[in-house]
Computed example of a mutant assay.
Amino acid sequence: MTRNHDLAPETLAAQALGFVDPEHKSLVPPVHYATTYERVPGGIGPAGGPGFSYSRNDNPSYTQVESLIQRLEGGEDALVLASGMSAVTAPFMALAPGDHVVVQNVMYWGIRRWLLTFATRWGLDVEFVEAEDLDALRAAMRPGKTRLVWVETPANPLWGIVDLAAAAEIAHAAGARLAVDSTVATPVLTRPLEHGADLVMHSATKFLNGHSDVLAGALVTARKDEWWERIEQVRRDFGTVMGPHEAWLLLRGMRTLHIRVRKACENAMAVAEAMARHPKVSHVLYPGLPEHPGHAIAARQMQGGFSGILSIRVAGGEAAALAAMRRMTVWHSATSLGGTESLAEHRASTEGPGTPVPDDLIRLAVGIEHAQDLIDDLTQALDG
């Protein structure tokens, strides 16, 4: 599929790695709905070449989008899975009961909840740490015992920034691997493997697809090793594969990834700057603002923008935040991020008891609309 290894990422995505159907010369790949494939007796696939056996193992529609994600992240191999949560859980399930894992304290709530419930009951030794604090991260390591360090940057929904190169050095010094949830940064802004990470995870439902119509997850590895083989086995044996049509839609969405992410970043910066001036906003949490505590690190490891998502804290507390949510008309009150439309969410209500999120916080997932429309709607909602 690849015609030129020197092409820019934008070109690779827009052309789906230069795909041209060898039989019909179509520029859009077909959807492979087959679940089973004819084999050479005693083997898999046609004689003398690669092949497929069963779609719980692999499918041509998976491999097309996997190849693109692998190239964009600069990894050795990639897998797509049925959802972001299936992509998150597979690396942990590829560990053994008793293994020690160090996990960022404030991150996507669904991951944190799964680790506190299923993962601990299954036998993983899960330790939460403020991963932005490198001394705290270093102190949490147990050389020879810690197997995995899991971080998210920017981290949902407070948007803390982890120094990936330093975190990788700390993990590797203890004999552990570093895995990075890079859903919000996307490969457009950050390529964690270039900073020393061993694994990258995406909830591909979000920016990679970008149209709020596909559940998908993706993993990219720096190397094909025994752990990666176990992750592949988890996907196969737990059946957490995508449908072929969803894989096709994901590939379709990724053709516009770069222009969508850049427009969302541009809009988010405009919204952040406007909200920083609003008297009824006490804090704007966005790494693109110079006053953000992680700004310098973000500026170093994010190229071309600071993501399309931010949070604001409303000066009047929870009641004022909920009142502003009710008055919004352009922003939709909904969960998710990375789509073309802008979404607002009162995260503490969504996450429920035990959340570390302040109750005055509104998460703003910025879309690709006109920025002034978004700012005007937030302004009138806050002003009441």
Rank of each mutant, 00 (worst) to 15 (best):
E169L: 00
S182T: 14
W109P: 02
S311P: 10
T350Q: 13
G288D: 12
E232T: 12
H346E: 04
E229H: 05
L178W: 09
L124N: 00
V28L: 14
F306W: 13
P358R: 12
L193G: 08
I231D: 02
D163N: 15
R255Q: 15
G48V: 02
L189C: 09
Y37H: 03
Q104P: 01
H292T: 06
S336Q: 07
A16Y: 00
L17E: 14
V151L: 07
L17F: 06
L378R: 13
H32C: 13
R255N: 11
K145C: 06
A324I: 01
A298N: 10
R191I: 03
I297V: 15
L215W: 04
L116R: 15
R223N: 10
A218E: 02
N57W: 13
T355L: 05
A8K: 15
L193D: 06
S67I: 00
H283K: 15
G316W: 09
F52C: 01
A176W: 06
V101W: 10
V314F: 08
Q303R: 14
L116V: 05
L68I: 05
A270N: 04
T355A: 05
L310H: 01
L164A: 03
S182V: 12
Q104Y: 01
L178M: 11
F118E: 15
E73V: 06
R138F: 00
L134G: 01
P154H: 09
A139K: 08
R347N: 06
Q233N: 10
P154T: 09
G217W: 04
G74S: 08
G48K: 08
P187W: 14
P192Q: 02
P244D: 07
T205M: 09
V314S: 09
G316Q: 10
V357Y: 01
E132T: 07
T117W: 00
H202I: 01
R300N: 00
E23R: 15
E273I: 09
G110R: 14
I362Q: 09
V357H: 06
A268E: 09
H100N: 05
E318S: 06
R255I: 05
P358S: 11
H278W: 12
L148C: 04
T2I: 12
T146M: 08
P9Y: 10
S349L: 15
A319E: 14
A94M: 10
L378V: 13
V126E: 12
V151S: 10
E246R: 00
A166R: 13
